[in-house]
Structures are given as C-alpha cells and as structure tokens.
Nucleic acid binder design. Sequence first.
RNA 1: GUGACCGUAGUUCAGCUGGUAGAACGCCUCGUUGUGGUCGAGGAGGUCGCGGGUUCGAGCCCCGUCGGUCACCCCA
Length: 441
Amino acid sequence: MSRPQPLSGFPELLPRQRIVELQVVDHLRRAFELHGFANLQTRAVEPMDQLLRKGETSKEVYVLRRLQADDRDTSDAELGLHFDLTVPFARYVLENAGKLNFPFRRYQIQPVWRGERPQSGRYREFWQADIDIIDQGELPAHYEVEVALVVADALRDLPIPAVRMHVNNRKLSQGFYQGLGIADTEEALRIIDKLDKIGADAVAKLLIDTVDATPEQAEACLKLASISAADTSFVDEIRALGVTDPLLEEGLNELAAVVDAAAKAAPGFVVADMKIARGLDYYTGTVYEVFIEGQEHLGSICSGGRYDELASDGKHTYPGVGLSIGVSRLLVPLLQSGALDATREVPTCVLVALANDDDRAAATGLAQRLRGRGIPTQVSPSAAKFGKQIKFADKRGIPFVLFVNDEGTQIKDIRSGDQVTIDVDAWNPPAEDLHPTIVTA
RNA sequence: GUGACCGUAGUUCAGCUGGUAGAACGCCUCGUUGUGGUCGAGGAGGUCGCGGGUUCGAGCCCCGUCGGUCACCCCA
C-alpha cells in the first residue's frame, strides 16, 4: 500500500472547501484594508534566538536544518519556522524602522507552524490573519480599542456562528495577585486560565500548592476570575474585593477605557472577563480572546493583546497592539463537519459542450467571448455524448452548459433543465451564479 | 514528550468461539445508439496499515512498529 496517508496536524482542503476558505480570507482582507492596514509578507523562518527571545516556547518551534549541514558547521545561524506572525513582525519593524512611517499598521495572512501534538482544532500548520499597530516610543491607548473594532468588523458578515470578544488586562490581574501578596503572579495567571477546564476547586488547590497561596488568597483569586461585565460595572465589583495595588489600579483604568469605548462603538461584542489570562507571554496590558458563543470549550478563534517591549533594539522601543484570527481553527472544523460548503467545486460558470472534436476551435472562441465579459468558462474535455458532458458539469456543480445546434447557440441551466437560445455576447448568468458562493448547512 | 483508544474496498462501516472478504453509498458499462439527474441490469475495485510470532489455518490471538483520534502540556 503505497498510497500516501494524510499527515496529522497539516490539514489540506478539497477544492470546494478551499473555495470557502479563499472567500473568507478575501473578506478579511477587504475589512482590514477598509481600515487602512497595509499588507505585509514575512519570510517563513526566523533565527532561533529571535523566536526563543520571549518565553519558553522552544518546544513548539520547528527547527530548520540543511540536509548537507556539517555537524561542526556553526556558520549558519539556527533557523526555525515562525509560530505566530507577531514576533516576525516585531523583528521586521526593527529591521526596517528607518523606512516605515509610524504609527504603522499592517495585516498579514500567512501559515504558521507549531511543533505540538495535534488534536481537535489544533494543527501543526495553520493560517493566521493578523493585524497590528505599532508606534515609536509611546502607543496611544485608543489603538487598543481600534484593533478590537477592526476584528469586530472583519468577523461580521462571515457565515460563522456568533462570536464575542473577552477582554482583560494583565496589569489588572497581576496587580491584584500582587496586592494580595502572591509572589509568582505569572504562574497564578496560568492557573486561573485553567478555570473553565478543571473547575474552581482544582484551581484553588493548584494555587495553594503551586504559588503558596493561602485558602483566603485562592478564594479571592477565584472571586476576581468570576467577574465579567459588558460595561464598566466590573470596576466597582473588583474594588469591593478590597485589594489595593498601583498596578491593579492602572489595569482597572485601562480596561475600563477599552470596554467603555468598545461598548459604544460595537454594542454587545466586547465583554470584560477577568479570567482571560492567556496569550503569549509578551503581552503587557490589554489581552483579547474571541470565542464562538456557546462553543467556548473549543478555544479562542482569535486572540491578541498589547505588547510594550517586544520590538526593542535597546535604544528604541516600538510598543504595539494586535490581534490574530485563527483562520484554520475557525474554518477547518466547520468545513469538515459540512456546516460550511461552496455552491460548486470549480469557479466555472459555463461549460461549452462539444458536438464533435473538430468544433473545439469554435467552442474555444465562444468560451473566450464569455471570459472577455468576466464569465468563468471552460470547454468540454471531449465530444462525448451530450449526456456525459452534462454529467461532467453536474458533478462539478457547473450551473450552465452551452450548446451550438440547429437552433443556434443555446444555454441550458442544468438545475432546472431550461434551455434557451442566447446571444453569447449579451447573455449573463444570474449574479448569484457567476461565482461559487458559500452555503451554510 | 506522557497516556488512552482506534487502523478492513474511493467513503462510511459490518465481519460470530480463529476456517481464506461483505453491505451501503460512490465509480464504470448497458437499457436510453448525441441532452444528465430517477429506475433497472451488469461490472470494476481489498497482499484486512506494516513486520514478526502462535496455529493445520489469523481480518480476528500475542509482540513490535508506523499512522490516526482524543486527553495532558501549550496555544489560534
């Protein structure tokens, strides 16, 4: 059995699924460009020290090596495939700082790679659609609202279930833990993040065992994590817990500003949620996670945050804020379950039938006239029986077959069976048939 | 990296206490001799993931291996 087997974690789509994915990506592009984001493409590889600069993500990185590399040859810096688009972007900004105009906004839609064991909704190669705004020295807080609203726009009108963005602020959580007297606030954050998965009791136990929290401190952490609100009412709720800390205060003010502005601009999309802790460890303030409503257990389909220190050459710092939509995570499950599909598996709108093989030149001419007016057309592969040529179209979902016969030039809608004489230079398919479209189950 | 479960036509699956391979759908042909879909008849397609072992005999039992799914870790 030499037939290749699929490789787990490297999803590949069928043509009709890819049509859906392409249209979704086009939609995202349009939304990003409407907000003035310029596109950027960065190389697939980064030096390992760049990738590992922040945090212990090392085991997630695929390392690249030349087959002929000599063991003793250390002249080539070790290279790894990028695991997100933010780290390469930060590197790119530093590298091109002199040629870019700040604040700089860009979007990037590319594959990323993570060397982890795949499971449902988690892949080793997947696509991200990333937007970021980076400034020089200082990054105004209003950009934290803007990127959230761009994502709200981008995800609107997509044929996907309703989504909601949960927002928190790392200063708020870590300031709270700090004010409470917990030393390892990073680890506390990580534990709180497991709340939905393992439950409150297990989290409390972990806090007590791992970061030496007292039962009372653990209780307070859980109380904080339970707070969420679609408006700024969370501020008073948190203050009522009686913990004071300058960092907490800063976080409260920042989060309140983001939630307030977002609630006005996109009512119902953003909710402050104190148990949001995740994201890569370079985030320093606001953090975002977007979930499919009612499907929170599937994980976030988009996440991001503010990072003040990621892009820094020691002399200049370029703080940024951005969000990354997990295109594969969002679409692959919907495609594989059949919840999303395309109306056909080819772009072709018209198949030109062939009465006999000598007619191919004439048929090609007709096809070219249709293409000249933007109608995707292909000529039948052979002058087989007309029944077979119609079946060829039917199997691919091509809606129209063009015949040249005694009646003249006729077009048949193979769904209805209607066949009418047309003028090739004037006929147009219904707008919804010109290109494949997305259908939801 | 750790653990659990699973690998049989293109696909989804069945296959009894071990006795030499099945269904449905899909595909091809014909009925319908150049206008499909329905219906009917016929047909092609499998070294049962791979390697070894036990046995007179293995899809089935044992060992190994590769692959897949899920969970942990981490994250989109």
